[in-house]
Amino acid sequence: MDEKTLSLIQQKIGYQFTNPVLLKQAFVSPSLSAVTQNRVQNYQILEFIGDAVLGLAVVKNLASEFCHVDASGQFVSSAPEGQLSEEKSRLVKNEKLAHCSNVLEFDSYLERAHGYYLHDRKNKKGDLIESILGAVAIDSNWNMDVLSRVASELLRYDKTVKTASEELKNYCEKNGLDLPTYSFWNCGSRYDCAVSLQSVNGLFVGNGKTVEEAQNAAVESAYTYLTGQNVTKKQTVEQTGANILNSSKKSPTAVEMVNLKYIKKEIVQPNYSFAQTAENGKLFWICTLTLNNNEHQVSGKATTRKKAKQAAAKAMLDLLENSKQEEKSISSRKFPGIGLLKRAMILRKEAF
């Protein structure tokens, strides 16, 4: 590999090597090491390192996008853990890495032994992304900021959710608007996403078969509204609720109703966790549903995760309804003959 090629690759990945020999090694196939009896080291050890580095860099970037430390010092996420795990898996899968490698034409730089071109399968092209990240890790002395930046640079050549959300984020920063916040929920066979823009009092909703499709649709709606291109009326919280309720001819599920309460800010973000238990030789799923402030916690048990989640959501709806009725009863006994609104205002003043 000559100096011109090395320079071109470094421009593509946005990183200048202190030791360019590492970058050369990232493009040496095992076949070449075999015919040189290992006098020339191949990319496999760098790929091993890069595989772990890629996962950590993607997690760091997702955490930067969806998570923050709140006023109480707790680390909170606007997206459920399951959705983040799915997005991470999508970003690091071999097919995506191979696509990015193709766009960057990395395969044309790979040094192979003669006659081994057809031996390199599609997934092998994805290995080059990981071997480059491994080389950057060693050269930068494991600088996480550098690795996150290079990982983003390598993965941006596919049309992804992150690219769309970054465009919206950049637009907001450029125009002095509050940054967008995201809410996600799983509605059976599809995902829904809501993008909240406090600066314009707007809530924009999208849905799709995957998390990325749902977020792309929501971001496109928000970005279209902000830029004034083919502007349609922005969705209010009430309209969002109507969309959820009317999204299917079937009655909304308990999970959808809990998500609707969250979107309408009647409750804080719901979090679901799962565990398995065995009873009389039969396996059951236990789903625990907790609101972020730990105000309420319920559980549901069933033979499948999906049914257990629905059972937990139903239990939460019942608990919220019972709490609401109890508050009305207490208010009625304490302030007989006074309207509910006035009672609530009096109780609120007493609380402070």
Rank of each mutant, 00 (worst) to 15 (best):
T5D: 09
T5H: 14
L8Y: 15
V21A: 15
L22V: 04
L23F: 06
L23Q: 05
K24E: 11
F27G: 00
A34F: 09
V35T: 03
T36E: 06
Y43G: 01
Y43R: 04
L46P: 02
E47Q: 06
A52Q: 09
L56K: 04
A57T: 01
E65A: 15
E65K: 15
G73H: 00
F75Y: 14
F75N: 07
A79H: 01
G82I: 02
G82W: 03
Q83D: 11
E86G: 07
E86P: 01
E87H: 05
V92S: 03
K93T: 12
K93Q: 13
K96R: 12
L97Y: 09
H99D: 08
H99N: 09
N102S: 02
E111I: 13
R112F: 12
H114L: 02
G115E: 00
H119P: 06
I129Q: 00
I129E: 00
I129T: 00
I129N: 00
I132E: 01
G134F: 00
A135L: 01
A137L: 01
N143R: 02
D145F: 00
S152A: 14
R156Q: 09
Y157P: 05
K159H: 15
K159N: 15
V161E: 13
E173F: 13
D178Q: 12
L179W: 05
P180I: 03
Y182W: 14
S183Y: 09
W185Y: 12
N186C: 07
N186H: 04
S189D: 10
N201G: 06
V205N: 00
N207L: 03
K209C: 06
T210E: 01
E213S: 11
E220M: 11
G228A: 14
G228C: 10
V231F: 12
K233N: 05
Q239I: 09
N243D: 12
N246R: 04
S251V: 05
P252K: 02
V255R: 04
V255P: 08
E256K: 08
E256A: 10
M257W: 03
K261L: 11
I263H: 06
K264Y: 04
K265Y: 07
V268W: 10
Q269F: 06
Y272S: 01
S273G: 08
T277P: 08
N280E: 12
F284G: 10
W285A: 08
I286G: 08
C287P: 03
T288N: 10
T288K: 14
A308Y: 13
Q310R: 08
Q310P: 03
Q310T: 12
K314S: 08
K314E: 04
A315L: 06
A315I: 04
L320C: 11
K324L: 11
K328L: 14
R333A: 13
A351E: 05
